[in-house]
Design a protein around this nucleic acid. Structure first.
Lengths: 253, 253
DNA sequence: TTATTTTTGATTGCTTTTGGTTATTTTTGA
DNA sequence: TCAAAAATAACCAAAAGCAATCAAAAATAA
């Protein structure tokens, strides 16, 4: 049996039992204690379990290893934007959440809210919020885009059009005073437009690198949006162009 | 056999088994271990599998691991029923798949099909099939039932009603010649009914423990179903009662 | 057809992994 | 605090797996 295989089995067994001794693990997997010790040492190094004398314990809130994304400068910005946007969600709200990494970042900060309802087409958001009892989820139906891990297509748009939400949190690929909102694909933009037209207030989450940039598909003008949630690295000219069009700029201080 | 051919077979075999040794792969595909190693090296370079000492593992979709089905009772019977049902799915089919552990068991055996489209309300099925390139998924939208990890409600029924499939694979909580089909909740039964009325042929997957039993919500009679896929522990009286009502009984031999 | 390139599978030397042994460290109980 | 017991980490040798090399076979091109 290979190491990744054993790792999986060890973590599984630990998750079920809570804690296990080296000997127990060695008998359970039919592996020598020496190898179990080496494995436990390595896995503990990854932060996925807690090594104890004589065995190991599970960690209650393991780091979501699946999300070890490139922690670039943009990640920090996105995190801030997500946090800032989540502050505009109040108990009892019904909100649309678009797919996209910046909107996804809101999830962490939504978990403390009470009695909110999330309507989304994003599988990562669904996965992140499924275990939160105070959040009800309405999943948008339609064709699955496996790559983007989201639902899209005509059926999805139709689904959105049959709901109304207090607020919509959406993303775009480009925004500028000249060309308005732009996206990489028509599919994405159709969903974003649907969210916008069925929500009371529309929040656009967008880090400063996308402001002033245009993507290829032009799908709406700035009046679609009420609030622009972004980071603080926005120069005066950019601000002016956007506020002039009626946008309210919200940024973390 | 050419490389792209082998690549496909290796990835397919890995997807079904989870992990395989070089020797196992070499025997399975009748290719020398040397070639298998070269292939694994290349495919791992593309990021499509995880190379381990002695073999390879499939890459898990970290986002959806929370949706995975937990192990329950009657596993062996359900596995057989799932396999048997999957044999009735042909390349190019469009199928409805209900939530429920028995229908879920079909997934393993669907992975070898080509160009099929699955319309489902089950998150475990979604998680299991999302990485299979030859399967297109249409997810049913609506309210999320966190406990059952499935979508239900009026919106979901409406979604189903806008599609037609060649075959529907459904589950129930009870079936008898006297009371027909019964379910624990109205929500579940509404989905099952919707699948049945929009499919050309309806397959009911049901282990023998549920046959002759009734649950509390009566939602349809036996004429809704064309095939009953079950295990072989069915006595003559049971068989007669059901075939008398027009059901075709299919069982693994 | 013949020449060239590519692919395949066997051989071989090298690396990694594994499980046992032993010295060292940690824990436990007096 | 000390000593006995338990667990660990370090070391080592055997086994398993791997990559590099090379020749034969197959596919492709001239």
């Amino acid at each position: 049996m290979s190491f990744p295989d054993r790792r999986k089995k060890i973590l599984n067994a630990l998750h079920q039992a809570g804690s296990l001794s080296v000997i127990e693990l060695s008998e359970k997997l039919a592996i020598s204690p020496a190898t179990i010790r080496r494995d436990l040492h390595d896995i503990a190094g990854e932060g996925l379990l807690l090594r104890t004398h004589g065995g190991a314990m599970k960690i209650e809130n393991p780091i979501l290893t699946g999300f070890i994304e490139k922690i670039g400068a943009n990640e920090v910005k996105k995190e801030q934007i997500g946090k800032c946007a989540a502050e505009h969600v109040h108990d009892g709200d019904i909100i649309f959440m678009d797919c996209g990494s910046t909107v996804f970042k809101m999830c962490t900060y939504l978990k403390t809210k009470n009695n909110i309802r999330v309507i989304t087409n994003s599988l990562p958001i669904l996965a992140e919020l499924i275990d939160v009892p105070a959040i009800q989820i309405n999943l948008i139906g339609g064709e699955l885009d496996k790559h983007r891990k989201a639902i899209h297509g005509a059926k999805a748009v139709q689904h959105i059009d049959s709901y109304h939400a207090h607020k919509a949190f959406v993303g775009v690929d480009g925004i500028s005073a000249e060309n308005g909102l732009t996206a990489h694909t028509e599919n994405e933009s159709a969903i974003t437009s649907a969210f916008a037209r069925n929500a009371g207030e529309v929040f656009l989450l967008c880090d400063s690198s996308k402001i002033g940039k245009d993507s290829y598909f032009k799908f709406g003008d700035l009046s679609m949006i009420k609030y622009l949630v972004t980071d603080k690295e926005l120069n005066a000219a950019q601000k002016e162009g956007l506020t002039g069009a009626g946008l309210i700029i919200v940024a973390d201080e």
